[in-house]
Design a protein around this nucleic acid. Structure first.
Lengths: 110, 110
DNA sequence: CTGTTCGTTAATCATTACATTAAATAATGC
DNA sequence: GCATTATTTAATGTAATGATTAACGAACAG
């Protein structure tokens, strides 16, 4: 009950810990529906590497892939970021209000 | 200029991607100044493992250690979480307002 | 001083993550 | 069909992560 086996936040934070993956998200946010090739273009890594990064992002629910003809369009799925925001706001009280408020909030929240 | 070598967000997100480390943060948020032994107690891992996790958290700036006698008191340092919040708010506009606003924000922000 | 407690470091091992090149699959056009 | 383009999968190597036990060092109590 302390750990529900695996927390979705694990994968989300892990996905966001790589600057190349954050760059991919930023590109998709700026322009939705880019192909894998267009995403790989400006990055100094190979296309298979981009596919792996997209796998990680898709596994975290941050990106979805839509096959269209012989190319794959990528879309940003910001829903998991909301979970991050929720987790974060618990700690936000720590630096705005005092410790006591937060202590109550985090009694059983990993 | 695209990448300033290493982004602090890398270490912060990586530190937060482990549920045990988030559990340590939650414990410290609920009760500041816990010792390493007290932190290791309820977790199903050895004390050296906790030391390593604290190294990671301290490296990300999320925790500071204060040696007091023969024990080490740990403190939560929420400042890096503010960087996460700032990064996140850029994407928050994505699901509240439209794509256009965000596109403008993320032109050169990795 | 000696023994005990608290914490870190050392040595080791298994697992996972990230990258590359080369081959395979899939869709399009001639 | 055959060549071309787009993307993924396979095979492989290396580096990072996470854990453990054992040894070490510092602080306190008797």
């Amino acid at each position: 009950m302390i750990n529900e086996q695996t927390n979705p936040l694990d994968g989300i934070f892990a996905a966001l810990s790589d600057p190349k993956r954050r760059a991919l998200l930023a590109r998709l946010a700026a322009q939705d529906g880019l192909t894998v090739g267009e995403l790989a273009g400006p990055l100094p890594i190979s296309m298979p590497a981009v596919t792996r990064h997209l796998d990680v992002l898709e596994g975290a629910g941050l990106v979805s892939r839509e096959k269209q003809g012989r190319r794959v369009l990528c879309h940003l799925r910001p829903a998991p970021l909301r979970a991050v925001r929720d987790w974060l706001t618990d700690y936000e009280t720590f630096w705005t209000e005092g410790l006591d408020r937060l202590a109550a909030l985090l009694e059983a929240k990993p």
